[in-house]
C-alpha cells in the first residue's frame, strides 16, 4: 500500500472526516506533481505574496512579529470563501447531495465534512506562512533585538493572534458554508460570501471606527476595532501608541468576548446550514 493510503487509512472513521481522505489523496499526489488542481494556483499566489511581503517582513523589528501574524486572518478571509463557498452549492449543482443525505451521516456531519475538506488545504498553506513568521521571529531574537517598552511581548501576541486566527477562520467557514447551503449555485455562493466578508472586514470598520471616534473619543476605537480581526492590527497599534495605554486585563477581556462571539456565530451558521439541509426532507429538492 502506498504511503498516502497508509496515512488515509489511519484517519479515524468519524463521519465528518468523510471527504478529508479524498482531499488528502488528491492534494498530496496531483497538486504536488502539477496536476490540474485549484490548490496549485493558490499556492502560487501565496508564494507571490511572500515574495512581495518579504521586504516588509525582513525589515520588521523583533516586536512586530506578533503583528505580522495578523496577515493570517486577512489571508484566510479571502482564501476560505474561495475554497469553502462551492461545497454545498456544488453538491446541488452536480446533484450529488442526495447520496450523502441517504448515507448514515447527519446533516451537521455533511456540512462539517464538506467544510473541513475545503478548509484543510487552506490551513496547510497558511501553516507555511505561519512557519515563516515564526522563523523570522526566532531569527530576530538571535540578531539580539530586544522588546521595547510599552509594547505587547511576542510571547503574548503570538499565541493570541494564533487563537484569533483559528476562531476567525471558523467563523468565516461557518458563514461561507451557510451562504453555500442557501444559494444552490457555486458562483452566487462565491460572490455572496466574498461580498459579505469584504464588507465585514473593510467597509464596516471604515464606517464604525470614524463614527465612534466622533461620538466616544479615540480610546473607544480600540475596543470596537478589537471586535474585528483586521481591526486587531489597529487595536494593537493604538494600544502601543495611545497616550493612556489600555490595561492588559482589558485587552484580554476584549479578546475573550470577541472570540466567543465569533465562535458562537460560526457554530450558529454551521447549524443553520445543517438545518437548511434538513428542510429538504420536508420540501423535496425541486424547489
Amino acid at each position: 500500500m502506498s504511503f498516502i493510503e497508509n496515512i488515509v487509512n489511519r484517519i479515524p472513521n468519524k463521519p465528518m472526516f468523510f471527504e478529508v481522505r479524498q482531499q488528502l489523496r488528491r492534494s498530496s499526489l496531483e497538486s504536488a506533481t502539477g496536476g490540474s488542481n485549484k490548490l496549485g494556483s493558490i499556492i502560487g499566489v501565496i508564494i507571490l505574496l511572500l515574495i512581495v511581503g518579504s521586504n516588509l517582513i525582513m525589515s520588521a523589528r523583533y516586536i512586530q512579529v506578533g503583528y505580522l501574524m495578523f496577515i493570517l486572518p486577512v489571508l484566510a478571509t479571502f482564501l476560505l470563501p474561495a475554497m469553502v463557498s462551492p461545497v454545498i452549492a456544488g453538491e446541488f449543482q452536480r446533484r450529488s447531495l442526495e447520496q450523502l443525505l441517504a448515507a448514515p451521516l447527519s446533516s451537521l456531519d455533511i456540512v462539517k465534512g464538506k467544510a473541513l475538506r475545503a478548509v484543510v488545504p487552506v490551513l496547510m498553506m497558511l501553516a507555511v506562512v505561519f512557519l515563516m513568521i515564526l522563523l523570522i521571529g526566532v531569527g530576530k531574537i538571535f540578531q539580539g533585538h530586544e522588546p521595547e517598552n510599552g509594547v505587547v511581548s511576542p510571547f503574548i501576541s503570538l499565541p493570541v493572534s494564533t487563537i484569533l486566527f483559528f476562531v476567525w477562520s471558523y467563523f468565516v467557514t461557518g458563514l461561507t458554508v451557510f451562504i453555500s447551503s442557501v444559494t444552490k449555485s457555486t458562483s452566487a455562493a462565491l460572490l455572496a460570501s466574498v461580498g459579505i466578508l469584504v464588507g465585514l472586514v473593510f467597509v464596516v470598520p471604515a464606517i464604525i471606527i470614524p463614527l465612534s471616534t466622533v461620538v466616544f473619543g479615540p480610546t473607544v476605537i480600540g475596543y470596537l476595532a478589537a471586535m474585528h480581526p483586521a481591526g486587531m492590527v489597529a487595536f494593537a497599534v493604538l494600544r502601543d501608541n495611545s497616550p493612556e495605554p489600555i490595561s492588559l486585563p482589558a485587552v484580554i477581556a476584549i479578546l475573550v468576548v470577541s472570540n466567543c462571539i465569533y465562535l458562537a456565530f460560526g457554530t450558529l451558521f454551521l447549524n443553520l446550514s445543517a438545518k437548511k439541509l434538513g428542510t429538504y426532507r420536508k420540501t423535496g429538492f425541486e424547489n
Binding site: P15, R94, R95, Q99, A103
Partner: peptide, 24 residues
C-alpha cells in the same frame, strides 16, 4: 437516485471506498 452526479476528481475505487467507509 434517478438523477445523480459524480465528483470531479475521484477515481472509481476511491468513490466506492468513500462510501464503504461512510457506511462503516
Amino acid at each position: 437516485p434517478d438523477f445523480f452526479g459524480l465528483y470531479e476528481d475521484i477515481k472509481v475505487w476511491e468513490y466506492l471506498d468513500m462510501f464503504a467507509t461512510l457506511y462503516g
